[in-house]
């Protein structure tokens, strides 16, 4: 139980890898708009390119998401972070960590990479201002030794953005 902090160390369970194969197939036939899955060898780490939706503060900008799957995915949430440089957003820290409840407390095994991506894009799209979270510096300092965002005790105090 100790270390979900290093989700990529443990191999995927058979269930997890079956499920991920399904997700890859579904993604290939029906990718979420605005996202590109960059094919690599590892089922366990996906690199996904996001393009800001038209008509939003991030129009035309592209960012990269890194999705790491834990051994017991989808019972456990994947770890999703932006590979810096992360978009300027009140809920995205400069180290790429994303404050979004469905990635932590509100994760449900019925969610998929695709649905998570859509949530992230929607979070970006509804941003009122390109700025960092107020506690960005402190948080990033605390995470310096490569801590996973899944270890953070997140406070989800704002569902407007």
């Amino acid at each position: 139980m100790t270390s979900s902090s290093v989700p990529s160390r443990k191999v995927l369970s058979k269930i997890a890898s079956n499920r991920l194969q399904k997700e890859v197939m579904e993604w290939q036939t029906n990718p979420p708009a605005g996202f590109k899955y960059k094919v690599n060898d590892s089922l366990q780490r996906w690199i996904i390119e996001v393009t800001g939706a038209p008509g939003t503060l991030y129009t035309g900008e592209t960012y990269q998401l890194q999705v790491d799957f834990p051994e017991h995915y989808p019972m456990e949430a994947p770890q999703v972070i932006f590979i810096p440089p992360a978009p300027l957003h009140p809920h995205i820290y400069s180290n790429g960590h994303i404050c979004l409840d469905i990635l932590y407390d509100s994760w449900s095994p019925a969610m998929t990479v695709s649905s998570v991506c859509i949530s992230i894009l929607s979070m970006l799209s509804s941003s009122p201002a390109k700025e960092r979270p107020a506690d960005n510096d402190r948080y990033v300092r605390n995470c310096r030794n490569g801590r996973s965002p899944k270890e953070t005790r997140w406070w989800f105090h704002d569902d407007k953005v």
């Binding site: 139980m1 100790t2 270390s3 979900s4 902090s5 834990p70 456990e76 949430a77 932590y104 407390d105 509100s106 994760w107 996973s148 899944k150 270890e151 005790r153 997140w154």
Partner: peptide, 18 residues
Amino acid sequence: AHGMSSVGARSQRGRQPI
């Protein structure tokens, strides 16, 4: 069993208030 003292995704989820 772990008195919630551990940090990690699983204890996080256990704390779920909603």
